[in-house]
């Protein structure tokens, strides 16, 4: 079996691993790096539970080979809170009950966090459309959308305060 050596930055730390070429990024994260917060909910790239950031963009880590992420900067749900302080999106999900079973949550949070970088003031419609790539079976999305709206507000206020 041929293996490849891949090196990447995950949550700010440089990591390397020897993997089969057919290894997916999500497998590298979960199996090699034991970052099990990133979940696998489907095999057709639709549920979005595996969403992580690769070079600052949300992607489905079940649909990218570990080899393709060689040299990339990857952030997972485990790397979103800084110094023990929840990210505004995490905090808003907690505050607004944007999660129930928690399985889709890491992907939902990572996807939402990416949205708010790209669109700091999204409309309800823009939030719902952006989250097309993340399926939740528990919440009916109501509180997820509310949480993203509130996180957006918090982040805008933080940004204004910093100016």
């Amino acid at each position: 079996m041929t293996t490849l050596s891949v090196s990447l930055t995950v949550n700010g730390k440089k990591v390397s691993a020897d993997v089969e070429p057919r290894t997916l990024l999500v497998q590298l994260l979960r199996e090699n790096l034991h970052l099990t917060g990133t979940h696998v909910g489907c095999d057709t790239s639709q549920c979005g539970a595996c969403t992580v950031h690769v070079n600052g963009d949300s992607v489905k880590s079940c649909t990218i080979l570990a080899a393709q992420a060689d040299g990339a900067d990857v952030r997972t749900i485990e790397g979103l809170a800084q110094a023990g302080v929840l990210h505004a999106v995490q905090e808003a999900f907690r505050e607004h009950h944007g999660l129930q079973c928690g399985f889709c949550t890491p992907g939902m949070v990572m996807s939402s966090a990416d949205l708010l970088v790209k669109n700091p003031n999204p409309s309800e419609h823009e939030i719902r459309t952006w989250l097309e790539g993340n399926i939740c079976r528990c919440t009916g999305y109501h509180n997820i959308v509310k949480a993203v709206q509130h996180a957006a507000q918090t982040l805008r206020q933080t940004a204004q305060a910093a100016e």
Binding site: T36, G37, Q90, F93, L99, G102
Partner: peptide, 9 residues
């Protein structure tokens, strides 16, 4: 929620 939100489920 905290464990679910931080990937510690």
């Amino acid at each position: 929620d905290k464990r679910f939100l931080t990937g510690k489920g």
